[in-house]
């Protein structure tokens, strides 16, 4: 029993957040331009070292007065290269001996979204009601979906034997998501330009997931 990964999609079909645990087959990093910045550092395209010395933050709003020079920026993770292990996250770097799915992360994220959307439409069509798609199971994993009224889709992959994890996804929504994304003025939701990743959000989800009885 374990939990493998979490994807969050916004209503524009784009992946805005990704996190994984215990994943033996990892995707290759996304290609340049394949995913938004601030989705997940683990799968972001590798950056040339020279570009990080320039501007500190990709956010150019005049209200954005925080910079890592003047204080601690914890509210958003952006294109800034950060030290690999941040103090809030206790997670160690992933072990190196992992096989790859052969897919780049951006491709994988699109496939996951495609499957979820098709199944959702199929369930609606078959039932003739406004019935939601809940989960599907294969021999190796189980995929759970929770969709918010605002169109955000929370997708979680877990061990095939787990019960429905919809409540967990809902907890992530009403807990970390509302607290560190919706109420975070530095995260521009629905921007189509940035993901919603930030250190507190990631740490908070990590705590929540690691505290579950199904996580081991």
């Amino acid at each position: 029993m374990t939990i493998n990964s979490l994807y969050i999609y916004d209503r524009h079909c784009t992946c805005v957040y990704y996190q994984d645990w215990h994943r033996t087959r990892r995707p290759k990093p996304a290609v340049e331009g394949g995913i938004l910045p601030a989705v997940s550092q683990a799968v972001s395209p590798p950056k040339p070292a020279a570009t990080t010395s320039g501007s500190i933050s990709g956010f150019t709003s005049p209200r954005d007065t925080l910079s890592s020079g003047s204080g601690i920026v914890v509210a958003l993770n952006d294109m800034v290269a950060q030290s690999p292990v941040t103090p809030l996250l206790q997670t160690a770097a992933p072990p190196v001996a992992l096989s790859s799915t052969g897919l780049a992360f951006d491709e994988e994220a699109k496939l996951v979204y495609g499957v979820v959307l098709s199944l959702r439409n199929m369930i609606k069509k078959l039932s003739g009601r406004d019935e939601q798609f809940v989960n599907y199971r294969t021999s190796a994993y189980k995929l759970h979906l929770y969709e918010t009224p605002s169109g955000y889709k929370f997708v979680m992959l877990s061990d095939p034997n787990t019960d429905s994890l919809r409540f967990v996804l809902r907890q992530i929504y009403i807990g970390p998501f509302l607290e560190y994304v919706v109420r975070n003025p530095l995260v521009s939701m629905d921007s189509r330009e940035h993901g919603i990743d930030n250190e507190y959000f990631r740490a908070s989800i990590d705590r929540l997931v690691r505290g579950l009885s199904v996580f081991s």
Binding site: R129, F133, R137, A140
Partner: peptide, 29 residues
């Protein structure tokens, strides 16, 4: 559609190789 989804689901496995979807659940069926 189901045929296509079935093929894709076997490629999304986070842990080792996987079959395609075996059970798909909605809220009532």
């Amino acid at each position: 559609t189901l045929h296509g989804i079935h093929a894709i689901t076997s490629r999304l496995s986070p842990m080792g190789s996987s079959s395609g979807a075996q059970i798909i659940e909605g809220e009532a069926f």
